[in-house]
Computed example of a mutant assay.
Amino acid sequence: MSVDLYPLASLEQIENTPSKSDGIPAWVEEDLRGYGCKLIAEAGVLLNQKQVAVATAQIIFQRFWFVTSVKQFGIGDIGMGALYLASKLQECPVRMRDLINVYDVLLQRTAHKRKALASGDLRPPELKYAPMSYFGNTFYDLKDALVVSEMQILKRLGFNVNVVLPYGTLVNYLRLLGLTGRDDVCQRAWGYLNDALQTPVYALYAVPTIISAAILLATRNFDIALPSKPPHCWWTLFDAEWEDIWSVSGYIMRLYRPRTLEEQLLPMGMISKRDVRKWLEDNEAS
């Protein structure tokens, strides 16, 4: 496959993202991106949506933040718009009302969980969901946000929403390495590819590199040795560079790091652009 198939961020976009230009630290932006992708995944489960649509939405979501700041658009709105657009691209469209209702549930659940964590309640009471009023403004506000988000994604990405998913290629690579007989390795590598969707790697590296990182992590988990001495390095079969594979592996493994209470609460309280701007004002004042 040609690398031209993968729309990737430029070096300038990587070094100086729009969010960084607006004074948002890299670690905050990374956490917000990751949490936005989690909301997309949870919405996909509640909607019984296909995995290809959810994965496409997460990749488009990550790309968007290389051209726009989280200060300008909320991760909740853009996540909703990305999932709506991806569902059309993968020919498994969802009803707008269903998507809006699901995101309303997720936003209430997030607020409920954040309140419980902040109060130190390890066993919070079950969320009592309050449905939107039929004649209230909440539904129409979310509907407007969904329409605007989809339009802005298309506009700012220049309608370049082509996405190459890694799953079929992973199977071919595992077959070439003689690993298809190990169900545990296949499942672990597949899981790493899914987890990587919470990181920006799909907008930074070509798919063969990301797949190679997933295989590296999976085989090391199960102490499986692969040829790694030049000139017989297994990753050269896939035109991947070791430094890039190691970098992608680092992105994935950072997802599993222990998080402080403050780190857990931060993205939950910055889902809208209003929340992000308030956080910026508070930190500038301090």
Rank of each mutant, 00 (worst) to 15 (best):
A214F: 07
Q198F: 12
F61M: 03
A189K: 03
Q108R: 08
M96G: 01
D4H: 00
W27D: 11
A285V: 05
K88A: 02
L39S: 02
C186R: 11
A41Y: 09
I75L: 09
D275K: 03
D195I: 00
I75P: 07
E243I: 09
L170N: 09
G36Y: 10
D141W: 07
L83R: 11
Y202H: 14
L193S: 05
I245P: 06
L179T: 05
L5K: 13
A116N: 07
I24W: 06
Q13N: 14
I245S: 08
Y167K: 00
A213Q: 04
P231G: 08
V52W: 05
L261A: 10
S87Y: 00
L8T: 12
A116P: 00
L237V: 03
A225C: 08
N137Q: 14
V52S: 15
L176C: 13
S119G: 01
N16M: 11
L106D: 00
W190S: 09
Y251F: 15
T209P: 07
V70N: 06
I60Y: 03
P131Y: 00
F61P: 03
A130V: 14
E150R: 05
E42S: 12
I24T: 02
L122M: 13
D4C: 00
L170Q: 04
Y35K: 01
L142C: 04
P124Y: 14
K115R: 11
G178A: 08
A206E: 13
Y167A: 02
A9Q: 04
L176I: 03
T110L: 02
G250Q: 05
L142E: 01
D184A: 06
E29T: 01
